[in-house]
C-alpha cells in the first residue's frame, strides 16, 4: 500500500505556549481505516485540525497524496472531507442547501444527483427541505457527514462521528463507513467508543499527552498485547495451588481457579489440563476471556 498521508516531525505549540503535539511521525495508507485513539486532551483533534489546515503546525510537514498541506493547500484540501466533533450547523438553512453549499465551497459544480444519492444513503432524503434547527442530534450528525462527503473526498476524517448517536444509528453509520472504504476512501477515525475502532479499524494509533505511543495493525495489536484468561470452576475448591502447577500463573478465587496467559503461551494449556488430571482436580465448568481493545488501550495509556 502507498501512503495517503505522511506526517513528519510535527510539533504544535499554541499561542499561549501550550504544546499540544510532540514530534509526530507516521503514515496513513491509502484505502485503510485508521483509528486514532487517546484520552481527552491527548491531541487527536489538534492533529486532525493540523492536517485539514485549521491550525498551522509549529514545525514539521504533512503531505496528502504527495501534496504539501501548506504549499499545495488547494490540492490537499480538495481531497479531504472533515466531520468535526462539535455539531456545528447553520440552523436556518435547509439540509439540501447546506450540503450543496459545502460542495460549492470545494469548487465542485452542482450535482443534484450526487447530493440526492448521499442524502438517501444517510437516510436524510425525506428531511432535505427541513431546516437544520428542526433536526435531532443524530440527524444533524448525519448532515455533517453528508456535508463532508458532498465534494467526493478521497480522505475522510471522522472526529467522534457517533458521539450522542443511538446504537442502531451507530451501527448504520459503521456500515456506511465500510461502504466508503470499499470505494477506496481513506478513513481516519477518532472515537471514545473503543468498540467502534475494534469493529472497523485496520490499524490503530494511540496518542497520549501529544505523543504517539503506538501505531499497529489492529489484529497484530490484539494478538500481541491481549491477555487471555481461563476460569475453571472446581468441585471441590482448592485450598492451595499444588506444587506441580507452580510454574503456571494461577490464582484461586472462591471455587474458581484462574489461569492468565499471553497468546504466545497457548501451547501450555494442554499440559495444564494433563497436570490437573494427574492431581485429581475435578472441573465442573470452564469460561474463557480475552482482553478487548479497550482494555489494551487503557493499559497502554496508563503506561
Amino acid at each position: 500500500m502507498n501512503a495517503m498521508i505522511t506526517i513528519s516531525n510535527i510539533d504544535k505549540v499554541y499561542t499561549g505556549g501550550f504544546q499540544a503535539l510532540y514530534n509526530i511521525n507516521f503514515d496513513i495508507q491509502k484505502g485503510e481505516i485508521f483509528a486514532l485513539l487517546g484520552p481527552n486532551g491527548a491531541g487527536k483533534t489538534t492533529l486532525i485540525k493540523t492536517i485539514c489546515g485549521l491550525t498551522t503546525p509549529s514545525s514539521g510537514h504533512i503531505t496528502v497524496n504527495g501534496f504539501d498541506i501548506i504549499k499545495d493547500y488547494r490540492a490537499t484540501r480538495s481531497l479531504i472531507g472533515l466531520v468535526p466533533q462539535e455539531l456545528t450547523t447553520d440552523a436556518f438553512e435547509t439540509v439540501w442547501k447546506t450540503v450543496s453549499f459545502s460542495r460549492g465551497l470545494f469548487g465542485k459544480s452542482p450535482d443534484p444527483n450526487y447530493i440526492e444519492k448521499i442524502l438517501k444513503q444517510l437516510s436524510l432524503w425525506d428531511k432535505k427541505d427541513n431546516k437544520l434547527m428542526t433536526l435531532s442530534g443524530g440527524m444533524k450528525r448525519r448532515v455533517m457527514i453528508a456535508k463532508a462527503l458532498s465534494h467526493e473526498p478521497r480522505v475522510l476524517f471522522l472526529d467522534e462521528p457517533t458521539a450522542g448517536v443511538d446504537v442502531e444509528l451507530r451501527k448504520g453509520m459503521w456500515q456506511q463507513v465500510r461502504e466508503l472504504k470499499e470505494t477506496g476512501v481513506t478513513i481516519i477515525l477518532t472515537t471514545h467508543y473503543i468498540e467502534e475502532a475494534e469493529e472497523m479499524a485496520d490499524r490503530v494509533g494511540v496518542i497520549s499527552s501529544g505523543k504517539i505511543i503506538l501505531i499497529e495493525e489492529k489484529n497484530k495489536l490484539m494478538k500481541k498485547m491481549s491477555n487471555k484468561e481461563i476460569r475453571l470452576s472446581l468441585t471441590p475448591p482448592l485450598s492451595a495451588i499444588p506444587s506441580s502447577l507452580a510454574s503456571y500463573n494461577l490464582k484461586i478465587e472462591g471455587n474458581d481457579l484462574i489461569y492468565k496467559y499471553e497468546t504466545s503461551e497457548s501451547h501450555k494449556i494442554y499440559k495444564l489440563f494433563e497436570l490437573l488430571k494427574i492431581e485429581n482436580i475435578e472441573i465442573s465448568d470452564l469460561q474463557t476471556h480475552e482482553s478487548s481493545l479497550e482494555e489494551i488501550f487503557v493499559e497502554l495509556v496508563k503506561k
Binding site: L54, T88, D90, F106
Partner: peptide, 14 residues
C-alpha cells in the same frame, strides 16, 4: 460563533 467557520477554513480557498 456557530463553529461552521471550520468548513470555510478547510476548503480549498485562499
Amino acid at each position: 460563533f456557530t463553529g461552521t467557520i471550520f468548513e470555510i477554513l478547510s476548503a480549498p480557498l485562499s
